[in-house]
Design a protein around this nucleic acid. Structure first.
Lengths: 232, 232
DNA sequence: GCCTGTTGTCGCCGTTTTGTGAAAAGGGAG
DNA sequence: CTCCCTTTTCACAAAACGGCGACAACAGGC
């Protein structure tokens, strides 16, 4: 079995070297990034199979990197952080991380946790990788860059609208229930949230659809939820 | 969304209570076992979705429990142990554990790691084993996407019509009584509902059948109910 | 052919669900 | 503090849907 490609995100050169040396010694292939922007760029362009992520990056918070990556990819993310507070762990794990190690960490433990992740990847292989850019008709969503276009025109979306668009586009063709959508957006699902969802859907449609009357991209399923259609 | 069933394996009653109390407070369902034999028995007989496992059991080593369980099941195992040595972690992880927490552990962290596991379970459930598309002649029902097609043409169905179609298609070839159908659709079965059922059946047929006169898919059984036929 | 009981179809109207504009509330940057 | 952008709430109009009664169509028994 071919060893997976691992993206190592760490700004501190000595630690990064420690990790990469270890990986090399165990026949892993790897990429490196020293900051958040680089991490997202590498993740989107080279489709690594696992990410090792330090939270203390110079340009952005590591948790933000997790959130951004999670808009388009489910690749396993193992956090390696100096922060050992519960709150930090919980924030990272809930943002989408799969595991959390605190520095100083044991190299052997890291390798063991990598093996766990690898084992899990092998078990569920069929789920293919997702492209970092989604295209559908004139609509284009660049998950890595975090922006969307309609033709050449960039859409100016609020964070919520963008998340909503990501959610719909990652599930083209599938009907997403109100509950599911609100869960994904806000982690809860009260009646009020569904009302808000309608408002966001309205503003998103206003920016996205040419003809308000007959939506081209987003279809309503009464009593159920919404669905993005494949266009052309 | 239904919370998963969790098997708690821990011989120390106070800690076990701490865990189960926490789980109960967060609406998880759980089972308990106080030793290795019990753990294996519960795991095999009740098919829990996640196992929380203490390594220090009275009757056998926790790692042995992992190995035994792994001979037939892939259920996620989160180890909670007083042993904080690297060697112990590595042994457990390589034996098949998915995560490893050391005592004393933070309840919040445990919950966060449970959520990670749950997320992963949810992610691989839909894409995996279950066949989510029903095909019958030109008719195609995509249960996962929540929509139906006749040839290339998508059918625009109301919630009731869709539910009805699902019910019939999931029981192709079987005659479903009026009572059964109304029970499934509305949870009750008054005479009026049977009348309504006829109306829904009419609209559904209008959308589904090419020739109104001789139904191709849905057959009426006078005095009994309806049946979907296998076509071609 | 006629009668009876069952089934199919139509249209109406009340209810539920959704879309949308505007206003209030919240939050971060300067 | 103020401004600006985003999110949430509210109110109301528009649309879709479900339930119902009326009646036509149909099948089977005689």
């Amino acid at each position: 079995m071919n060893k997976p490609m691992i993206l190592v995100v760490e700004d501190d050169a000595p630690i990064r070297n420690l990790i990469t040396t270890t990986l090399r010694a165990h026949d892993y292939r790897y990429l490196t990034a020293a900051n958040g922007e680089g991490a997202i760029l590498e993740a989107s362009s080279h489709n690594p199979e696992i990410m090792l992520l330090d939270l203390g990056l110079p340009d952005m918070d590591g948790v933000e990197v997790i959130r951004r990556v999670r808009t388009w990819s489910d690749l396993p993310i193992i956090v390696i952080s100096a922060r050992s507070e519960d709150a930090d762990k919980i924030e990272a794990l809930d943002a989408g991380a799969d595991d959390y190690l605190t520095k100083p960490f044991s190299v052997e433990e890291l390798l063991a946790r990598l093996r766990v992740t690898q084992r899990r990847l092998a078990a569920q292989r069929p789920g293919g990788t997702v492209e970092a850019v989604f295209t559908n008709g004139r609509l284009r969503v660049d998950y890595a860059a975090g922006c969307a276009f309609l033709g050449e025109q960039e859409l100016h979306l609020t964070p919520s609208e963008y998340k909503l668009l990501c959610l719909l586009s990652r599930n083209v063709g599938k009907v997403l229930t109100h509950t599911y959508i609100t869960q994904q957006l806000w982690g809860r699902s009260w009646d009020n949230d569904v009302a808000s969802l309608r408002v966001f859907m309205a503003t998103l449609r206003k920016k996205l659809e040419q003809e308000p009357g007959s939506p081209q991209y987003i279809q309503t399923h009464i009593g159920i939820g919404y669905r993005m259609l494949r266009v052309e």
